[in-house]
């Protein structure tokens, strides 16, 4: 069930809600079945994920008039620049392994779920599905150069977020 898992994971990270994720995947699979003729036989996973993404945005337009998520303050980020704290956080990880592991999982999940949609989707496709820039470009319908710049900005935002959370 490799592709179904990928479809669900992607839908989950797009919708950030388990029930909606399942609805989206179910709808996407029905679409996949209907439009199977449009599948070129090349990369089934990328093809299915593109359908999941389309289904998500259709669903989003229908259900939410206001799709603004918690946006990062990118200007603040630019002012702060990078911080080494993220590495210290990695070192402290070894002190109490199980506790830290659970805690860091929560941090990472929260940081990821608070990324703006455009950035979250490329990060999920890249880090969790380990897809190539080319596949991500196909799925998200953006040029490879945009994939590159969005990934870069997404990583900077995540760094910033993890640093900020840690300081709380």
């Amino acid at each position: 069930m490799a592709h179904l898992n990928a479809a669900h994971n992607f839908a989950y990270w797009l919708a950030r809600d388990p029930r909606n994720a399942e609805d989206i995947v179910q709808e996407a699979c029905l679409r996949a079945y209907k439009f199977i003729d449009s599948f070129d036989g090349e990369n089934g996973r990328a093809w299915l994920l593109a359908i999941v993404r389309n289904t998500f945005y259709t669903w989003l337009e229908k259900t939410r008039a206001d799709r603004s998520s918690i946006e990062f303050d990118e200007h603040a980020l630019a002012a702060h620049g990078y911080d080494m704290k993220i590495l210290e956080y990695d070192e402290s990880y070894s002190i109490d392994r199980s506790l830290q592991q659970e805690e860091s999982r929560r941090w990472v999940d929260r940081a990821l779920s608070q990324l703006p949609d455009d950035f979250r989707e490329v990060i999920v496709l890249r880090e969790l599905e380990e897809l190539s820039y080319k596949d991500i470009s196909t799925i998200a319908g953006i040029p490879v150069g945009t994939v590159m710049s969005r990934l870069s900005r997404a990583r900077k935002l995540l760094l910033q977020h993890l640093k900020a959370t840690q300081e709380l």
């Binding site: 669900h8 388990p18 860091s104 999940d109 990821l112």
Partner: peptide, 13 residues
Amino acid sequence: TSAIRKRATYHPA
């Protein structure tokens, strides 16, 4: 990158 890969939750169907 490794933090996301190692620690982000993967949600299988």
